[in-house]
Each structure stands twice: as structure tokens, then as C-alpha cells.
Nucleic acid binder design. Sequence first.
RNA 1: GCCCCUGUAGCCCAAUGGCAGAGGCAGACGACUUAAAAUCGUCCAAGUGUGGGUUCGACCCCCACCGGGGGCACCA
Length: 818
Amino acid sequence: MHEAYDVHHVQEKWLPIWDEIAPFRSGRTDDPRPKKYVLDMFPYPSGDLHMGHAEAYALGDVIARYWVQKGFNVMHPIGWDAFGLPAENAAIKRNEDPSIWTYENINTQRASMRRYACSFDWDRVLYTCDPEYYKWNQWIFNRMYEKGLAYRKDSAVNWCPDCQTVLANEQVVAGLCERCDNAVTKKKLNQWYFKITDYAERLLADMQQLEGKWPEKVLTMQRNWIGKSVGAEVTFEIEDRDKPVVIYTTRPDTLYGATFMVVAVDSDLARDLVTGTSVESEFNKYFDSVKAASDIDRLATDRPKTGVFLGRHAINPVNGERIPIWASDYVLADYGTGAIMAVPAHDQRDLDFARAMKLPVRVVVETEEEDPATSGVATDGDGKLINSGSLNGLSSADAIKKITSELEAKGLGKASNNYRLRDWLISRQRYWGTPIPIIHCEKCGEVPVPDDQLPVRLPDSSTLDLKPKGTSPLATALDWVNVACPKCGGKALRDTDTMDTFVDSSWYFLRYTSVNSHDKPFVKEEVDTWLPVDQYVGGVTHAILHLLYSRFFTKALNDMGYLNFTEPFTRLLNQGMVIMDGSAMSKSRGNLVRLSDELEKHGVDAIRLTMVFAGPPEDDVDWADVSPAGSAKFLNRAWRLAGDVTSAAGIDFSSGDLALRKVTHRALHDISFAVESFRFNVAVARVMELVNATRKAIDSGCGPADPAVREATEIVAISLSLIAPYTAEEMWEKLGHKPSVALAGWPTVNPDLLTQDSVTAIFQINGKIKSRIDISPNTTDAELEAMAMADEAVKAELGSQTPKKVITKAPKFVNIVL
RNA sequence: GCCCCUGUAGCCCAAUGGCAGAGGCAGACGACUUAAAAUCGUCCAAGUGUGGGUUCGACCCCCACCGGGGGCACCA
């Protein structure tokens, strides 16, 4: 009779023991073991951990624990991304400081992580809302400011009229506020930006280093987001105006086909061109109508083109032609130069506009297709240039080269690249974030708070009204806002905006190395030791913003001499989502699965195993398709092996049953390989096989006393230590070892035990299998071919025919081609 | 509309271009049991979305189409 395996009892039993042993405390910088830095994306502390966390942390844990077993000095830290709107909203509702809600949740999550047996180094915890942390956000902001990488400008930002606040791009979903579902509008505000566009080219080029190590999907998304375009700038003189207008185009070869110019309606240029003219009032009417249009309208496809003729003309530099200048909202003010030459024949948008406004269409690239003027379909492909002066007869590619150099020679243009990437707006008019460390002085202007006065702490929230009003709540903390200018001592005001929380997460991976450093954001020796991160694990939701921002910070800090590397995350694993019945879990959909319920029902190990076994890590796990009960059953089965082993710990395995030993070492080899290639589901399958083989050996094979049974069971325990730590620990103890199995060390494969006595070779005729035969793995090609020719089935099939060709790959197969 | 990923037993998933099945779930049967649960054992099932092509040989490589998922979407 076996005692029952009481998961909850076992969980309670091991937690204090692990606290005592602390098997995952990372070594110091002088640790002789090679280092590995495994990083899980840190959570936002909203409530308790959920199923998604459970999957992500289970996967990260397998990797971290594997490397510990393999003898690396592993750092696997955790912290909390603790600033953000939900805390503030909860605080408003509960009428208390956001830190209370935040730290309550952190404590809940920390307890859950401990119970979930995450192999975190609990000595390296950080909280981004801690002044000891956000002080360094401010310090980095100052460095950015010194380098001109932090600056202020006026621009139209996303504005939710209902929430009365600026929204980040990612908080605008299909033109609606993600929280209240009201239409988002634009509002012109003076805001702080980080100049990430300075790094556009390097962010793009350095992705070469990540090729094959990051998911291709993420690299593609980042490339699209950066959106490099190659083209040229061309200068057009303007009638009755001293200053010419520069336009950006990717098709300088179509310059002769430009029949009008369009400037962005909301650009300074449009305003300048129209001021004082007779169409000014008409323009203003149009401008107001565009401003009133919400993002939803703008996003609508097939939206008819609108615009207004500015009554002015530009001169085409290549042919001196006089072309009208229009203003429209289909040209963007903040991309390129905010002005374009319109070539309706070869650009669909320009054609749509030309047809709406009855403007001429001139074909300059000859294609096989119908005339765009009649078909309404622009021909944007390559072709032979016509109606284009010196370019006639050239291909588009050649024409681009020729016209660009001609313009350049005349000082009328130059090759130029553009990026879709915009500078990063970091100002937020909210309380629960890092105060921007700038003081506005009447005399001195913007003055950064000196480093030795950091952190600029948040004012006490109890005296503030945190409700969103469109201006930062910090502005109402008068005692806080009014300060003496650090430069002249005169009257000055603090900047009242707080930083986007993505700032916090753009360098937290550096801070983990030095959480106790009070005079620096990170200690150079520590960073040099641990960084870059060897393995980053997290959801694909952060494929663009967080990863791009972190890469930007790393490059900027590298340029400033603080870091000796340029890419923060060497490898990236994106785990899938945990879904239910085919769709994302949500309360409103009624398909929410609560992690705490699942843990209560099946235990931590079974849930971790289920997550890991469900499929490839990057695939979604549909909780309806998996069986935590099945996982629990398997763990029980594995655990019972340890109780059946009757040999003593430390016994020499070499005399053990050879067949089982071979199975064991083959399994060990395959498990290692699968774990290293992130095919954890396959690794689990191999452990299951080994458990099955061991069970059989005990019940109807060599018996429980055979050393091979102990060897197999120990390898099961060590393998399971990556996935099911409680079960593994119980097994290890039953097997007569001291805890912790997490530190047992990964067993070495004995290559002699990987060889097989016999393998099955197949004989094919024209690729069809005709016969099978068991042979020695050492059989040569010639021997195997001879065996094939002597094979009865082959002979019968062959008859008197002579093979045209025989392909032999010993010891696997012979294929006879007739 | 453009780009990317994906399609293998009822289900989740394996398979360096070489025997389509490793593992699990579900199901059936048997052993143990007074019975049930648990446990142990046996069994069941697809010819790889469709159509072409390359190859001695294709789940795997190429092309087209269909279904599913994702990203981008006035960026000149």
C-alpha cells in the first residue's frame, strides 16, 4: 500500500525548507561558474497572479532551473512594474494613496510566486514605484536631457474627453479610449519627448545581431514599426515666396508626373502659405473640420479625399512647370517634410485626390496596365520612363539614380531616408508615476533638478485630488510645485507631469544587478558581469514598445559610456497566451479560469506541468484542451517510483539492467536536447516515457532492487525538478538524498549507453516499402545492399528486372529504383 | 488591401528529406475490488487542408488555392 500523495501538505512542507536553503540565490561577480541571466518580464501588480503569469513563469523557470542544474551561476530576478493608472484609479475609488493598493497586490503576488515555486532570487527584488528606483529614472532623464535626447515640444496628442487625460498610443484601440470606449480626439499640448528617432537606423541595423535568437515575428514587427523608407528630398520654388518648399518622395523617378503639390493641413507650412490670402477663411473652415474628425473617421478605409486649394503654385524643378498647391489631411504633418509632390498616375492616394478635385493625371512610367486616368487604378510598378525629358527610356531604378544625382548637382535635392518611428512622448498628466525632474524658472527657463537633489519625490497624495482633470494632479500640490530655481534661486515651478511607465521598464534589467546601490543606478562591475540578458521570457504583447524602448535606452547608455554592450536581450522567448474555449479569457466573456482555483484543485506542480506540456511554448494554451488532472496523475506515477526503489542511495549504477540503462540515457540525452531547444513539451514526453519504462522494469522486469531502476528514478526526479519542484523534492527525499534536488546537478549522459544493438532497416522499391530487417548499426552500405538483393520480398517484387539505380544509406534503408 | 505564421487520429501535440506516432487527453475492454475510486494492463484510431511541382524518396522544400491566427493599414 502506498501512502497518498497530498499535494497541499507537500507544498507547505517544502516552502520553509527552500527559504532556508535559498537554492536560487545568484552568485557574486567573483563566482567562478559561468553566468546566465534569465529574465522574466516583471508583472504589473493588479490583483493576484493569473493563468498568463502561471504559464510565463513556469517556462522561465524551466530554463533558469536547467542552467542551475548545468552548473551555471544563474541570476533569475523578479520585481514589480508598480507605477501606472490602475493603481491610481483604485486609489481614487478607495480614497487612499495608490501605494497602499500597489503594495497590497505586490505582497499577494509575491506570496503566490513563492508558492508557485518560482526560482527567483529573492535578494534582488525591485519596485519601480520605490523612490530608490524612480530616483534613477530621473537620473537617466537628466543624462538624456544633457545629450539633447529629452526635449519638449508642442504637438497634437491623443486626448480622451471623457477621462480628461492624455492617452498613450497603446491606450487608443481603434480610435477609442481603451478604458471608457469613448472616441479619442487630438489636443495640442506641450509635452516631453525622448528622441528615439536619433537611433532609428541603429535600432534597425542592430537587429542583425538578434536574427535567429529572437522570434522572427518580433523582428518583423519592429522593422515595420521603425518603417524605414528610402527616397529623396526635392526642392520646389514657390511663386511669390522667398522660401522654397522641400518635399519627400520615394519615387523621384516620377518627378515629371507631378501635377500638383499637397501639404499637410495641420502643418505650419500650410498655415504660412495661406495666411493673408483670399482662401484663408475657406482653409480655416477645412482645418476646423479636420480637427473635429475623430480617429475613427480617420481610420475608416475608403474615406473620400478632402482638401482645399491654397491659391498658390510651386515650380517643378525639372521642367519649370507651374503646379497648384493644395492642403489636405491625407498628408501627415509629422512625416517627411509634411509636403509631397502628387503623382496621380503612379500613386493611388494622389490619384484618388486628383479625381476628386478634377486635377490632371500624367503617365510617366509606361506599364502594361490601363491608363490610371480612366481605370482609377494607379500604376505603381516598375516600367520604362516616358514624358520625362532626360529620363525617357530608363527603368525606374536607373531613373531614380540619375535624377537624384542631377538634383544633387544643382542643389535642388538629395537622397534621403525617412522613418515611420516617432519620438517617444513620455509626459503623463497623472499622479502615480515618476516626476519629471525639471524646474521651470522665469529667468533661467528649463533647469534640471541637480543629481544630488534626486529623487524628486511625489507629493503626499492625501492632500491632492487625483481625479483626472486634464492637467496633472501634481499641479495642485502648491507646496511641492513652488520651488527656488536651482540655478538662480529665484521663483520657479516644478514640472508637474510624470513619466510614461515604459520609462521604468526600459532599464530595470540593469537595476537587478545592483538593487542595493544607493549612489548609482547600477554598478559597472555587476553590469559587466551579468549583462546582457541571456534569456528574456515574456508575452508578445510587448513585441514593439517595451523591447524597442529598452533597446533604445541600452544604446543611449552605451553611447554615454555606462554600458559596454548595445543590445540588452540576447535571446527572446515569447510564450503564447492562456485562453479558454478558443478565445482570450475575460470576465465579461464568462470564460475566466482562476489560477487560485486551479492550484487548489490540482496543486502547483500539476499546473506548472500542464503549462509546460501543453505544446510549444510560443503557442497559445487552450485550457479547455489540456488536462491538469492528467498531469497530476502522471506526477503521482512518477512519485510512486521513488517509493518502490529498494536499492540504497549511492549504489553503483554500472551493474544495473542494461536495457533500462540504455532507455534512461537515451531519455536523458533527449530531455537535455529538448530543453535546450525550448521544446519543453517534448522533454516532458520523454520523461513520461522514462517513467513508463521504469514502471515496467519494476513490475515485470529487473525489479525494484536493480541499480538501473534507481538510476532511472533519480533522473526522473532531477528532470522533474525543472518543472514540478515539489514532486521532485519528495522523490529525492524518498530516494535517500538531502535537499535540494534543484542543486543535484544535471547527470551526464554515458555515450556508450546510447548505442543500439540492432536497428530496423527498410527496403524500398521505387520509394515504396517492401520489407524490413533488423541489422547491426555497424552494417556497411555494401552489406546492406547485398541483404536487400537477397531479401525474399524484394526478389519477388524485382523478378527479372534490372534496377536502374540503388540508393543505400546504411543502416537505415535501401531504395531500389526501377 | 499588403506582409507574416499555421493546417498530422475525436482533441492537444511528436516526427536531422528516409518505417507517419514519441507523449498525453478522451474512448473501449480486461485485471484488482463485495462494489466504486485509485492503480495496472491491452486495444482503438489519421496517411499529414486541396491541387500541382522538385526528388530515388516529401508531413518536411517550391508554386497556387482554401481554412485558422497575427501584424500593418492614407508614412508619399
